[in-house]
Design a binder for these strands. Sequence first.
DNA 1: TGACCCCGTTACGTTTTTGTCACCTCTGCC
DNA 2: GGCAGAGGTGACAAAAACGTAACGGGGTCA
Lengths: 237, 237
Amino acid sequence: MRLNPVSFPVPMPKILIVDDEEDIRELIAVNLMREEQYQLIEAADGLEALRRAKDERPDLVILDLMLPHMDGLTVYKKLRENALTAKIPVIMLTARGRLEEKIEGLELGADDYLSKPFSPRELMLRVRNLLRRSHENPSGNLVETGPFSLDKNALKLHLDGEGIDLTATEFKLLLSLIESPGITKERGDLLKKVWGYSDMIQTRTLDTHIKRLREKLGSHGSSIETVRGVGYRFSGE
Amino acid sequence: MRLNPVSFPVPMPKILIVDDEEDIRELIAVNLMREEQYQLIEAADGLEALRRAKDERPDLVILDLMLPHMDGLTVYKKLRENALTAKIPVIMLTARGRLEEKIEGLELGADDYLSKPFSPRELMLRVRNLLRRSHENPSGNLVETGPFSLDKNALKLHLDGEGIDLTATEFKLLLSLIESPGITKERGDLLKKVWGYSDMIQTRTLDTHIKRLREKLGSHGSSIETVRGVGYRFSGE
DNA sequence: TGACCCCGTTACGTTTTTGTCACCTCTGCC
DNA sequence: GGCAGAGGTGACAAAAACGTAACGGGGTCA
């Protein structure tokens, strides 16, 4: 059984396999490699997993929830907390039963899970699905507008030839604005998207961060326009 | 005297939910509406889905593949064949397992799919992603009449080649007038639509804002005509 | 542990927006 | 012409919205 070949923008996707049993890692690896080429890295426990994820930035993590020392769910949460690894899709492996419920409760953003025992084919599908999804954003991990170029991987902004470091919050905010230039984003929407605030909470946090962003944009600070009483708008120039 | 603020006139996306079980439709509806406002329409089987899609042109279709009478994939293909519905993005819902393979075989252009059970958050993300992609083309968000061009996305007015910034109130007022040129809008209607005033409150606020608008329109100020004793009328030129 | 960074909040100052008022002009009618 | 009602206009003050600097808590890292 052969699947249609899928072309990835990245030559060879890097996958991190986290499981304490070497047999299982091997099993997964063999099944994955049967139909596509991936670059595989492995970790046997949670701490190592976190380290390697941060160092090597895989495109996908396959995470067994049954781990020594550190619970898999904890690993998952820590991955999400770190800006560097927050967007890496994760496939969680669970024993059929109790854990499934816990996972259902999680907000599985770009993620997925699989109950053991799983069929090789199913694993393949999930892997390809997640990789497709995470790589399909328009121009890979770069958002470019005028002289601005936002690098989603490095959380960095390139502007006028120099790289500007942004914090995680600043990045999310700028991204929200820049991904649709010329469109006015309402305060409430920005608060929801960047901070997760649900209601029209009265807060000056947004203003403060806008100021910090404008500072970092330097002479281009005026690209972020204020629309009084409504929100902010990023003008392509 | 200040009354409740009037919500800003953003276009409300229309979503068609196709599922034979009312419970599921309800579940999806509730989850969708938790964070955004959408106009929802529903269909319980494939034929109805096709009919409503053609009649009402939703911005997005959420399609359960398990349907009575007509298979969901057939519905999907028929949607694609009809020029009127060919470009509407579709999110397909599948039971985890068999059907996933079939979908993988499809060329998912602007579409996506989700395996049940799915997390509400994930559904939200897909919906917003697809809507953003298809909705951002300025087609429906420009109101053009003569030399006037009101951009609902940017909340800006373009006139004689230059962009004119309007305040939120001015924008709403001008939009109310300009969206039906040549038609006289009564004072009471304008007060209700722009300010949310319910009764025929005696106020000169409307007059003042009309004046301010005319000023900003410069030489085109006379496009806003006074209809004595009734209200105002926007003449296309 | 201590230095540092990020971030949300607060307080205060400034700018913009907006509703109202007083006074004026215009129009239609007697 | 005189009158009344409707709308135009400029001024004004309150309120709202925003910019900004500074503070302190919490986390990170050496």
